[in-house]
Design a binder for these strands. Structure first.
Lengths: 291, 291
DNA sequence: CAAATTAGTGTATGATATAAACAGTAGTTC
DNA sequence: GAACTACTGTTTATATCATACACTAATTTG
C-alpha cells in the first residue's frame, strides 16, 4: 500500500500552502517553522518533565507516550503511527496526547530520539580505533535496520536529542586518542556516519519490506527486476554488461566464501565499503604522522 | 490500525492508502504491497504511454502531470504535493489525475525519477577515474540539494526508474576501465553513493530550510544549539571538548583558507570525506595491481 | 451512424490532525 | 476544611486528504 504520510505544517494552516501530504510518502520532521519553534521542539527532547503542576496527576508521562508511539511504529510501520493509534494503545482519547506533546511532530521527534537508543558501551579495554569504529558502524546499521521506520524520517536535521548526541559521542570516543584534530574528528565522524546511513538504505528497505510480510525473495525479485531492465538497453551499456556477467541476483546470505563471479551479499557489500572508508581514514592518519 | 498489513481485499482498494499523515513527517514510497503491485508500480516508470484507446483524447500526459507534481514539490515542499494541488496546477479536477496514475504513490514514484534528472554528460575526453567520480559525486549532491524534497522519500527501495539507472550507469562509466571486477564496481558505486547521500543529509536539510524561508543563520543556530547542549554535559565529554575547542559554529562559506581551529564548512567537510573515500578506493585498486 | 470505450466531473466517504469548549479533580490557599 | 484554580482528559467540530462511485461527454471503431 501505500504510502505514507505526509506531513504538515506545524503552525497555522490557514495560510499555508502546504500542508500535509499524504499519500505518498513524505516525510519530514525536519526543520519547519521559525527559529523559535525550532527551539521549542528541541527543548522537549531535553526536558522530560511535565511541570509539577497543580491539578490532577497526569496518568502518563512523555516517556510513556513515546514508548507507545514506538511500539506502534515498530509493529505497523510509520504510516500506522497516528495520534489515534498511540492514544488507543494507552487507553487515552486522541486529544489527551496533546497534553503531553503540542503536536504530532513533537511526538515523533521524541520518539525518534528514544528509538535510536544508545550505542553499545565498550565492555572490554580499548581496542585499536579501527576495530572500534567498525563496531560502531555495525551497531548503527543494526539499529537502523531494526527500526526501519526511522529511516523514513529526515532526522539528520533539526531536533537532535540526547541519544542522537550519544551516538556521536560514542564514535568520537573511538578516535579520541588518535592524532586527529578536533575538526578532523568531526569530519571523520561525518564520513563514517554518512557512509553507514547512506549505505544501509538498501538493507533498511529490505527490513521494512520484511516487517510488512514481504519475503526476502519477493523483495529481491522486485528490486532485481528494476535493475534488470537495464540489461540489453543501449542506454545502460556498462550496467548491462555487469549485470549479465553476474550469476544471480542479490543474495541474502550465502555459505560460500566470496569469490569472483558471485555478487556480494548486502552485508558483504557493506563491509567491503566500510573497509574502503576505513582505509581512507587510516591513510589520512598516516599522512599526519609524516608531518 | 488495522489495516494494512495483511491485505485482504485484493480487489478493491487493496491498499488503502493509508494515510497521510501528517504532521510529523513521514515518508515513504518504498516497497509496499505484494510482488505484483511492486511490478505494476515499477512498470509505470518505464512505460510512459497511455493506451491509445478509444474515447476522448487525454488532455495531458503522464509526463505533464509529473512535471506539475514536481513544480509543486519544488515550490512548496513535499508536504504540499497533494493530488489537489497537482490537479489545480493543471486545471483539472482532483479525480482526473487518477486517469493518469492509479494512486498518489505511483505519481510520486514517477515524479521522483523524473526529478532526479540525468547525470551530467562527460563533455571532454576521459579523465582520470578519480576526477570523474568526484564530478559525479558533486553532481549528485547538487541534484539532491536542489530538490530537497527528494530526500524525504526512501527512494532507494523499490521503484527504480530510467533516471535512477542512468545515474548508476554514469558512475560505472567513470570506473569502467579500471581493473575492478564487476562485483567490485557495484560495491564501489555503492560506497560512493552511500557516502554522498548519507553525507548530504545536512546540506539537504539546510536547503530545505532555506526553501521554506528560513535563513542560514536561523538554521545554523538551531542545529548548533542542539549540539551545544553537549557542552559541559558529563555524558558527552569528548563532544563537549571538541565543541568548546572550536571557534564558531557551522560556517556556510568562508573566504579564509581552511586552517586548524576553524570548523570546516559543510562543503569542505563533504570534500574532505569524499577524499577519504576515494583514497580508500584507490588504495584498494592499488592492492589489486600487486597481485 | 451506432456501439463501445474512456476522459474528466461531481459528490461522497473515511482517515487524520487538531482547534475549541467542557468537565472533573487534585493541590493550594485562606 | 472550604473555596479556588491550574491542569488533565473528553467531546465536538473543522479542515485537509486520498480515493471510491456514478455520471456526462467526447471519440473511435465497426
Amino acid at each position: 500500500m501505500a504510502r505514507r504520510i505526509g506531513q504538515k505544517d506545524p503552525k497555522s494552516h490557514p495560510a499555508k500552502p502546504a500542508q500535509h501530504s499524504s499519500a505518498g510518502p513524505t516525510a519530514a520532521t525536519s526543520i519547519e517553522g521559525n527559529g523559535e519553534e525550532l527551539r521549542k521542539r528541541s527543548g522537549l527532547l531535553w526536558d522530560d518533565q511535565l511541570r509539577p503542576g497543580r491539578g490532577p496527576k497526569p496518568a502518563a508521562s512523555r516517556a510513556v507516550v513515546v514508548q507507545a508511539a514506538i511500539s506502534v511504529a515498530d509493529k505497523h510501520g510509520l504510516s500506522a503511527l497516528t495520534m489515534q493509534a498511540v492514544a488507543e494503545r494507552l487507553g487515552f482519547t486522541t486529544m489527551a496526547l496533546y497534553r503531553y506533546f503540542p503536536n504530532k511532530g513533537a511526538l515523533i521527534d521524541a520518539s525518534v530520539d528514544a528509538a535510536m537508543g544508545t550505542p553499545p558501551q565498550r565492555s572490554g579495554p580499548r581496542e585499536e580505533w579501527r576495530k572500534e569504529v567498525k563496531h560502531w558502524a555495525y551497531a548503527k546499521r543494526a539499529m537502523l535496520c531494526s527500526r526501519p521506520w526511522l529511516a523514513e524520517l529526515p532526522f539528520v536535521a533539526a531536533p537532535h536529542g540526547p541519544n542522537w548526541l550519544s551516538w556521536h559521542e560514542a564514535f568520537l570516543q573511538t578516535i579520541a586518542d588518535t592524532r586527529l584534530s578536533p575538526e578532523d574528528m568531526m569530519d571523520v565522524l561525518s564520513v563514517v556516519h554518512g557512509y553507514v546511513s547512506g549505505n544501509s538504505d538498501t538493507a533498511i528497505s529490505l527490513a521494512r519490506a520484511v516487517s510488512r510480510g514481504i519475503s526476502f525473495e519477493q523483495w529481491a525479485q522486485a528490486v532485481g527486476a528494476d535493475l534488470c531492465r537495464a540489461i540489453g538497453n543501449p542506454r545502460y551499456p556498462i550496467l548491462s554488461a555487469i549485470l549479465s556477467s553476474q550469476s544471480g541476483g542479490i543474495s541474502e546470505a550465502s555459505p560460500l566464501p566470496a569469490r569472483g563471479g558471485r555478487p556480494r551479499t548486502m552485508d558483504e557489500s557493506f563491509d567491503f565499503g566500510l573497509e574502503r572508508v576505513l582505509d581512507g581514514i587510516e591513510h589520512y592518519m598516516d599522512s599526519l604522522k609524516e608531518l
